[in-house]
Amino acid sequence: MYLAWNEIRRNKLKFGLIIGILVMVSYLLFFLSGLANGLINMNREGIDKWHADAIILNKDANKTVAQSVIDKKEVDGNFKKEAYLTQTGVIVSNGKEKENALLFGVASKSFLMPKLISGHAFKENNQVVADKTLKEKGFKLGDKLTLSQSDESLTIVGFSESAKYNASPVLFSNAQTMEKINPMFNEDKTNAVVIKDENWKEQDLSNNLGAVAISDFVESLPGYQAQNTTLNFMIVFLFIISAAVIGIFLYVITLQKTSLFGVLKAQGFTNGYLARVVLAQTFIIALIGTVIGLVLTLITGAFIPAAVPVAFNALTLILFGIGLILVSIVGSLFSILTVRKVDPLKAIG
């Protein structure tokens, strides 16, 4: 370790370039992990707050709430906890701001309602609770909301914690309000029934209904899998690029030091010792580059606008940091093989 660190200190520019590249790669890797996590949260955070086991939909709805219509009486009372959910897309405006949102028809005391952070729950028709995403976009308590597709107006009476669904902000109201905006809904019809029952698979349902585990339901959200797959591929490629870059740089440096390794071997240094020196150098520069990249990522996260969907997870950052160091060490194996092949007599001349 001493020999490895001493050489890094004596060749600051050479090793500084490698560290600089690692800083950029690790910074991009950490930021992409935060972006992937943020986009996942945007799609599913409202669903996760249900803490539900399954959702019942029409079998022909392709696991999509908006395309499902079922009779309440076909499900009513079959499970431990049930909550009716109706959904419609709306474009709301308070006169200053205009936003695409989803309007959910739920019972005010059901487990589908997220926690309130201000105001109160809806008590009358045409009252809504908005998730705080809309508050961050300029909507306020008491705002009268006009709808592009209906003559009805809504009043914001409360704000809840963030509960986005499929990347859209959500408004919560009662079933009667939903019926006014979309006459398709009535007291007998609903889009879906969300259930809390660990034995939900044992219950029999009508032939036209299907129960879907919440995890499968989330995976079926439009664009969810494609988005996550794309970002995960980018993260994997960054790991590969990191290993390749480190491997190439260290290989070139090793070739430049062929005569030095020959002298060291002639003096009695073993292949194992020299291999440990190369691994130690790789570990040091990978550790420095990764730590600097992590610090820059956290600084960026502190100043990034709320509109950017980035959410950093401490465990993910640590695991990715360790992974980056490990793939860097893997990339140095080519240099170790080169060191083992050095012939002291030929290297010295």
Rank of each mutant, 00 (worst) to 15 (best):
M1W: 14
L3G: 01
W5Q: 07
W5N: 06
E7H: 13
I8V: 10
L13G: 13
K14Q: 15
L17Y: 03
S26M: 13
F30G: 00
L32S: 12
G34S: 08
G38T: 04
R44Q: 12
G46K: 00
G46M: 00
W50F: 14
W50S: 03
A54F: 02
K63S: 12
T64A: 12
A66V: 10
S68T: 03
V69W: 10
V69C: 06
D71F: 13
E74Y: 09
D76P: 00
F79P: 00
K80H: 12
E82C: 06
Y84E: 10
L85G: 02
L85A: 07
G89D: 12
K96S: 11
E99S: 15
V106W: 01
M113L: 09
H120L: 04
F122L: 04
K123T: 15
E124Y: 11
N125Y: 02
V128Q: 03
E136L: 14
K144Q: 13
L145S: 07
T146W: 07
L147E: 09
S150L: 07
S150W: 07
S150K: 06
S150N: 08
E152Y: 05
S153F: 09
L154P: 06
I156F: 11
I156K: 08
G158Y: 06
G158Q: 03
G158N: 03
E161V: 15
S162W: 00
Y165Q: 09
N166P: 11
F172Y: 15
S173Q: 01
T177R: 03
E179K: 14
K180N: 14
K180L: 14
N182R: 12
P183M: 10
M184F: 10
T190S: 13
T190R: 06
K196A: 05
E198Y: 12
E198T: 11
Q203V: 14
V212T: 13
F217K: 08
E219F: 11
S220L: 02
N228S: 12
F233K: 08
M234Q: 05
I235K: 10
I235H: 07
V236P: 01
F239R: 00
I241C: 11
I241K: 04
G247I: 07
I248V: 15
Y251D: 05
V252H: 14
L255C: 10
K257R: 14
K257P: 02
T258I: 13
L260E: 05
F261Q: 00
Q267D: 03
T270F: 02
A280G: 00
A286L: 02
G289H: 01
T290A: 13
T297M: 04
I299W: 06
A307T: 14
V308S: 08
V308H: 07
P309H: 08
V310R: 05
F312L: 14
A314Y: 15
L315I: 15
L319P: 02
G321V: 06
I325P: 00
V339R: 03
D343I: 13
P344F: 10
I348A: 09
G349I: 06
